[in-house]
């Protein structure tokens, strides 16, 4: 085989791979980041403004809504690409949420800023864990959200909710919009 034929074959491989990844990403990833960015934004902002038990109820409602919207996007994506172990993924998030709830109960009482930090770092750990398994974008999102939460807690613990709403939630929404526009 000549070098130009080999180059042509490699170009075809690269194009087919790029086309596929973009088509898959466009169908689901961007929207999932936007959905959870909205959950983070409303949850943290609401938590900062409402405080106390109302904040917990708000997060619960938002998590259920976020989960339902993610499932809808997942079903749509599944028409194109099926992810094995998706039931394990759902189980992982449910287990993580249950254990976070249990750990909060064990450590209670906790100052509000520490509670926000604790839950944020725990959920970010979920992003990192799933990201290591499936997606570098999710892995980096988890690491950045963890760093943001710790930085916000060190710099302005009383306003951590606002900090995470705008930088964390806003960042996820921005990443989702970027994925939808850049991976066309």
């Amino acid at each position: 085989m000549e070098a130009d034929e080999a180059q042509l074959a490699l170009d075809q491989i690269r194009m087919a791979a790029e086309q596929t990844r973009r088509a898959v990403a466009r169908s689901g990833t961007g929207w999932i980041f936007i959905i959870w960015g909205c959950v983070w934004f409303i949850g943290y902002l609401g938590g900062q403004l409402l405080g106390g038990a109302s904040s917990g109820v708000l997060w619960l409602v938002l998590d259920v809504l976020g989960g339902a919207c993610t499932a809808i996007v997942g079903v749509r994506t599944r028409r194109r690409v099926r992810v094995a172990y998706s039931w394990r993924m759902a189980g992982l998030w449910l287990a993580l949420m249950a254990y976070v709830g249990l750990l909060v109960w064990i450590a209670w009482p906790m100052p509000p800023d520490r509670l926000v930090l604790f839950i944020t770092v725990a959920i970010s750990f979920g992003y990192v864990f799933v990201g290591l398994w499936l997606s570098p974008v999710l892995l980096w999102s988890g690491l950045v959200l963890t760093a943001l939460a710790i930085l916000g807690w060190l710099l302005m613990p009383a306003y951590l909710g606002y900090w995470m709403a705008f930088l964390g939630g806003g960042g996820l929404i921005g990443l989702g919009i970027y994925i939808l526009s850049a991976w066309k």
Partner: peptide, 8 residues
């Protein structure tokens, strides 16, 4: 180009 756990 898909992940090992994915099928098209």
């Amino acid at each position: 180009s898909l992940h090992e756990t994915e099928a098209a």
